[in-house]
Design a binder for these strands. Structure first.
Length: 212
DNA sequence: CTAATGATGTCCT
DNA sequence: GGACATCATTAGA
């Protein structure tokens, strides 16, 4: 019997780079939630929208107040997950970037569902939602992939992790990337609120909002 | 200890 | 376009 093509490991080096470079590498890559032997089906999607939160001086970043119990993992090595709860209900998944000691992360804002759509739909609790909307927003990604704060610290570059990254297939064209200001951070003030640190795959139907 | 608030999503008008 | 659900986290008393 045939098996799907092997997934390509996502190199940690790409995440150790500066965060905007890392963001461009992450767009088009896959987010994979492992299935299990009993009932949970594997979930896979293509990452199409991210936001960068860069360094200790970024007033929109959780790292702005220095290391705390919540954000501590942002100060550690690249490739680990940072998951936080917003508005008391939505779990948001970040990938830690840059060198150990420098706080930075990429918020995964949208994913195009590829496999395990029924499991994603169950996670969302919205039986009639359109396929392309299953993970179109940071809270939607968390719900669709069954991610919560207990995933913080998980190594997303380890192929054995229950939640991990995988590179796009070699024959897949590199995506065209568009940028704009980050969403929902007006409180940070200028210049942070205008920095074009939201990056997305142009033309994806799964973006959380349109991006010109 | 108390109080304010948020890297959002959904339903309403 | 606007209301609001709902709680971990943080700052401050």
């Amino acid at each position: 019997m045939t098996r799907p093509p092997p997934e390509l490991r996502f190199p940690r080096d790409l995440l150790a780079a500066d965060s905007l470079t890392a963001a461009r590498a992450l767009l088009g890559a896959r987010l994979v939630r492992a299935g299990d032997a009993t009932e949970r089906r594997r979930r896979v999607g293509r990452i199409v929208e991210v936001e960068a939160y860069i360094g200790p001086d970024d007033r929109a970043s959780h790292a702005r107040m220095g290391p705390t119990p919540r954000n501590r993992v942002m100060f550690g090595p690249p490739g680990l997950a940072y998951v936080y709860l917003v508005y008391g209900m939505h779990h948001c998944l970040n990938v830690v970037t840059e060198a150990d000691g420098r706080p930075a992360a990429l918020l995964i804002r949208a994913v195009e569902p590829e496999d395990g759509l029924d499991a994603m739909r169950a996670g969302r609790g919205r039986p009639t939602i359109a396929d392309h909307r299953l993970a179109s927003g940071p809270g939607c990604v968390g719900a669709a992939f069954g991610v919560d704060r207990s995933f913080t610290g998980m190594d997303l570059c380890d192929p054995v992790s229950p939640l991990r990254l995988a590179s796009a297939p070699d024959d897949e064209p590199a995506p065209v990337i568009v940028t704009g200001p980050r969403i929902g951070i007006a409180y940070a003030g200028e210049p942070w609120s205008s920095r074009p640190w939201r990056l997305a795959v142009s033309g994806s139907p799964s973006l959380s909002r349109r991006l010109p």
